[in-house]
Nucleic acid binder design. Structure first.
Lengths: 165, 165
DNA sequence: CGTGAAACGGAGTTAGC
DNA sequence: GCTAACTCCGTTTCACG
């Protein structure tokens, strides 16, 4: 529940939530503008933002780049199954994947597959190079089921900040 | 190729790439600091950043929030297959999904499944509510294969800015 | 927790090469 | 395309309610 703070969840009031919503859509909004929207002065905004940063609610501020404009025309999703699931085999695979720059996302899963990977490459040729020369050099890999992104319906880094859900 | 500019890819020199790399890891770095790192003054940095924004290379600046700290303890990935693939049925499903706030990612896929969804919710109860009351209210949905994220090995918004791949 | 004002530094502009 | 210098405005701090 939002009301009952556990080890990791942090108590945030309406003003905090509004600050977070704004910063999630525009990290460069000024404290002055935020203050005006929230009928406050800049000082409390400044202090609340600093507090959210220190608490780790705000992890970082980043620029989002259009992948197509920088030559990354192909996004692929790979569902990976491994041969063996011993602790050190899992760790080895994770270390392997963490060192492949094309992998922008790698999640360890509970479910039908072991890992989910998101890959950003120039085209299908570079994807093949990724599969053959980079991913499948791990000996513990059993099989990979790849899908290719044709269009993005939703693609946001903003966490839905609702009171429920 | 990086050298041959097509309709969407933009010619970027070393300085542009370094600016992009920095802004991808810290959107709030000052032009002054960027200038110092690149042995330039602030004016060219300022103009290059503005140019990258206008060209759509830089899409936006956002704050990244720790989902756990704001009560989103469960990330799920859903692979969705639809019953019928007519143009209007696809559009209807996409419109349906675009209106569900828990869906932070929805990609139309080429491959074994039709859509990939990334879901952020509080816990398994709210996930069930998402599946039963929000996702599967679309009549064209055939089946959903859900996986749950146990850990994140890599999770970056930064596009690998290498000369190859 | 909030206001208001002061000190400081970066954003944005302009002239010149 | 770059430097240097300037103006302006937001950030940051602090005294105070």
């Amino acid at each position: 529940m939002w009301e009952t703070e556990n080890h990791s969840t942090i108590r945030l009031d309406e003003v905090d939530l509004k600050i977070i919503r704004q910063l999630q859509s525009n990290a460069r909004i000024t404290n002055k503008d935020l203050a005006a929207q929230l009928n406050l002065t800049t000082t409390p905004i400044y202090e609340r933002v600093k507090r959210l940063e220190k608490m780790g609610v705000i992890n970082s501020y980043v620029a989002l780049i259009n992948p197509v404009k920088v030559g990354k025309g192909l996004m692929a999703l790979c569902m990976v199954r491994l041969e063996k699931h011993t602790k050190d085999k899992l760790a080895a695979f994770e270390k392997h994947v963490a060192n492949i720059p094309e992998v922008v996302e790698c999640y360890h899963l509970a479910g039908q597959y072991d890992y989910h990977l998101k890959i950003l490459v120039r085209d299908m040729n570079t994807f093949q190079d990724f599969i053959v020369n980079k991913l499948s050099t791990n000996e513990n890999l059993a099989n990979v089921q790849s899908s290719f992104v044709m269009s993005k319906i939703t693609d946001t880094t903003a966490i839905p900040m609702l009171r429920n859900s």
